[in-house]
Design a protein around this nucleic acid. Structure first.
Lengths: 290, 290
DNA sequence: ATGTATTTGGAATATTTATTCCATTTCACA
DNA sequence: TGTGAAATGGAATAAATATTCCAAATACAT
């Protein structure tokens, strides 16, 4: 690959071997990075990926650090810097050291900076959701009912087929359950309601049902859960409060409180519970088979 | 002034020439600084003053920089570092560089901790995912490309219809986008592939497409995105790296790094980006209509 | 298959940066 | 104003770090 030509071509300069000017701002840096990342040989691609994901660290890292992080020799990093238009690593680092002025981008500071922007700016909104997500996770770690979690794992790992239901807001969670179970070879069916077919006949004794539902509780979810109980199919419930409908029918109730931002609520903690539950169940089933 | 005596006196050790331990946290550093600053000769006082007021620059400055800032020769700075209990400038700088890097997905230390603990019980597994989620969110706050986020919001808020595509692992995210857009009355279509219908004819000029894809990138997602570009439909991409396919075609690339636990990865940060993006777009569209 | 161009790793070198050391200056006190 | 102890500056050296270069490996085209 002929580096200079390639980069010139990307810039439509049409002049070969022209010396490329170095990016003079972080924004320009990211642009250049994106531009050259299109087509790179293996080692340089590793550099691009690592640097894209760890841009902040350049200011305080040596070539050797970056090289180790990207799992390439130092010379590859040097080549990469030059590919970006810098004379070498030092020049690139200077860009980031100069920009460092705004203090420690530790999580707290950075978050404050993000929120500082205009009230409605996308970054401010993102910062709010990040914060809400973190609070939700913290809260979850403190308040989740261990017994219920253990029961849920026990119930699900003994089931022949795991059925999953969740609508509207809870549908992504249900879909995520289905994805992990599929990946881990656990027989599972997602009751997604396509074509208004409810597959309720597929709910058979020996199976189990995971129902995910938050206020306002979706009709179909409640209906399927009720049917499950009628058929003696045990129910694992992911919901927002112990007083939600179905709670008394369930073998295990996992209550999850999401911290909201305005009228909005991201299912951060719910996802964590879902993935942990699914992985634990898959592990338990595997163990039981051996 | 007899340095060692003075410092020992401040520590009430009463033993002269004892080697002083270096501060091991920024807090300890500030304390030590305050303690010795009480009575210093001229040049060392200049060092103390400058360093107290520019602590944050230590991580990215050389001895010469600090010396110039404090208007003293480099050797004075060296003496000052030793007075604080460090072996030299490098050791002091390390403290600040480490503090700066804390909280990054540090694959050497942090992940080993995560994977190291025998995560047998469901509760332990959950704790791991909670921790991974927290790290992902922190990392997101620090590293998300603000420009790209703003561009994404601009592009999507001008679109007539917003199309969404995401398969397998990314499907729950795509579904969540669809849910929020529906709730906020933003015209949106989820390309879920039910019945192998691809709805590709619905992609029309004036629309925009959100594609969510992580390695290994799903065929259908790539195909639809390619089609969008052919029809001049702008593309907003949520993906794992800048070098992923489609990145060059996209109007905005939002790279999101999820911290994994073992082979598993919860889309915690991705969800946060999705909800923030969707809400920002809905807000922008509402504003535009008024 | 064969030759050519690209890519790669690492050893050699250059450069920058940290650290020590000591001759000189400054200061406190008689 | 002379004397010893402390403080200072800068030159010399050591260490770390960046950068180059080239032989070997690999990919690519014919």
């Amino acid at each position: 690959m002929e580096y200079l030509f390639h980069v010139d071509a990307a810039n439509d300069l049409g002049q070969m071997n022209e010396t490329l000017t170095a990016p003079d701002s972080i924004e320009a840096f990211r642009e250049r990075l994106a531009a050259i990342s299109i087509d790179l040989p293996r080692r340089l691609r590793q550099c691009a990926d690592f640097i894209a994901g760890n841009t902040d660290r350049i200011a305080v890292s040596t070539v050797a650090d970056i090289a180790a992080g990207a799992d390439v020799p130092p010379s590859a990093v040097m080549r990469f810097c030059q590919l970006l238009g810098f004379s070498g690593y030092s020049e690139m680092q200077k860009l980031f050291r100069d920009a460092y002025a705004m203090g420690f981008p530790d999580y707290e500071t950075r978050l404050r900076n993000l929120k500082g922007g205009a009230a409605e700016s996308p970054t401010a909104i993102l910062a709010e959701f990040v914060e809400a997500g973190r609070l939700s996770l913290e809260n979850l770690a403190k308040s989740l009912d261990e017994t219920a979690l253990n029961t849920a794992v026990a119930v699900l790992s003994q089931a022949q087929t795991v059925h999953i239901v969740g609508r509207r807001r809870s549908f992504p969670i249900a879909a995520y359950f289905a994805y992990i179970f599929e990946k881990m070879a656990v027989p599972a069916i997602l009751h997604d309601g396509v074509g208004q077919l409810d597959y309720s006949h597929a709910l058979r004794r020996g199976d189990a049902l995971i129902a995910v539902t938050f206020a306002p509780y979706a009709e179909e979810t409640l209906a399927l859960a009720a049917l499950a109980r009628k058929r003696d199919v045990p129910l694992v419930l992911l919901t927002d409060r112990l007083t939600s409908p179905l709670a008394r029918e369930a073998s295990a109730v996992l209550t999850i409180t999401e911290v909201d931002f305005g009228a909005f609520r991201a299912p951060t903690a719910t996802i964590a519970v879902a993935v942990a539950l699914a992985v634990a169940v898959a592990a338990a089933r595997k163990e039981a088979r051996e």
